[in-house]
Simulated scan of single mutants.
Amino acid sequence: MSQNKRVLGIDLCRGIAAYAVILVHSGDETWGVPIDQEAISFRLLFYFAVPFFLAASFYFMMHKPRAGSSLEFWKSRLERIVIPYVLWSVIYLLLRLFFFYKSNQLDRLDQLFQDPLAIAFCGGASYHLYFLPLLLAGSTLILFKNYFSDIQTKIIIFFCLVSIATRELVSVSGNGWKIGSSLAFQGVLEALSLNIDAYPSLKLALVYAYWVLLCLPYFFVAIILSRVFSKDRVLWLSRISIIITFILFLIADIFGNLFLPGTVRDLIMAYSLLLFGISISQPINEWSNRNNSNLGRIVSSLGVCSFGIYLLHPIPMNVSKLFLSRLGFKSQVTVISMLIISMTTFLLSWITVSLMLKHKWSAKYLLGV
């Protein structure tokens, strides 16, 4: 898509969210070393990425004609989500097999194949791939878009509040889902004394049901915002809205965990950042054109590459980790080590994805472009 047709503020926010994912993964518990308390607090500021990606996806789906009801829409979902998911799952599975074999970790080889459902359908090949089947599961909600077209906004707000309360109740009651697994609603299953491993299809269906439940509040908020900010009203998003939405995002991100339920905090962070991106798009375009700057091209490239950066980043991250360990940063995760690893990984991923986009096959099948 050309620069003039892109929403550059959203491209900027997509790039920021992609970096946020990398920073979170630069200091999580999978590293196997102690994490400094300041690093933990710093990391918590960057958990807005996945909520933002969900918010952006649902908001823009609402503005697509015949979304969910046309073969073209589902074909694009296949090309954009399913094919990259399958190929990257194979890539990461092969890399893990190679690494475990070369490092003589045969016990981890056995563990890898203990849950084939998680590998095939839940992103078990790598910790970050779960987002693709989650997004695909959530996309099925668009099938119900037309059923809400004639319903009053206040009723949809009621549905939204119910979905938020339900999602929060499921979360705090211990019925959530663990990344990389194929088990959801564990509390309910334990209460029923049900051996869910004997019913693999039901086990997988519960995970996808949980993902749909997770996406439901984003779906309803997207419907509400698509009515408030229709094409005729989007001009309301002026420069003052840049300040308002950004401050709202910062408050929810920094202080939201002190007084907001987790689901509400995620929604506020996600949609305030989305509206900030829409608001700042025109100023970015104007500034770039007025100063004959490459800013627009850089931001556009960032948006185009963000999905690929997300998919690719564990590979350069391990390279960065190896480099950092040789510099002596291997006894504890700190803010400094997180920043070094995340910035290095982000730049390496961006450069690699930019090169991949120049090749038709990798752009289409690995990056879904």
Score class of each variant (00 low, 15 high):
I119G: 07
F144P: 15
L87A: 09
S89F: 02
N104A: 08
S89V: 01
G180K: 02
L109D: 00
L95N: 00
K102F: 03
R96A: 00
L106M: 15
F99H: 09
G123H: 04
P133K: 12
L136G: 07
D107T: 15
A125Y: 10
C122R: 14
I179Q: 13
F144Y: 05
I119Q: 06
F99T: 04
V86W: 00
L136E: 08
L135V: 10
L169C: 12
N104H: 05
Y101F: 06
Q114D: 09
G138L: 15
G123W: 05
F144N: 07
I142F: 09
S173P: 09
L112T: 01
F131P: 07
A118R: 09
K154Y: 06
P133H: 11
Q186M: 08
I155Q: 14
L135D: 10
A165S: 15
S182N: 02
L143A: 13
N146E: 09
D150L: 12
N195S: 15
S126N: 09
A191T: 05
L117R: 08
A120R: 11
G124A: 00
W88K: 02
A120S: 14
D115I: 10
S103P: 10
N146D: 08
R108Q: 06
Q105D: 01
K154T: 07
E168T: 13
D115N: 11
K154M: 11
S193D: 14
L141H: 14
F185C: 04
P133D: 15
V172F: 04
V172P: 02
F159C: 01
Y85S: 02
D150E: 12
T166E: 03
L194I: 05
L97D: 01
A191E: 14
S171Q: 11
D110K: 12
S173T: 11
R108L: 06
I151S: 12
S149I: 05
Q152F: 13
L143Q: 10
E168H: 04
Y127M: 15
S126A: 12
V86R: 02
F131T: 01
I119R: 03
E168V: 11
Y147Q: 10
Y85K: 01
A184G: 07
G124D: 05
E190V: 10
G174E: 09
Y127N: 15
L183G: 07
G180D: 02
V162P: 05
Y85D: 01
G124W: 04
I119W: 08
S149E: 13
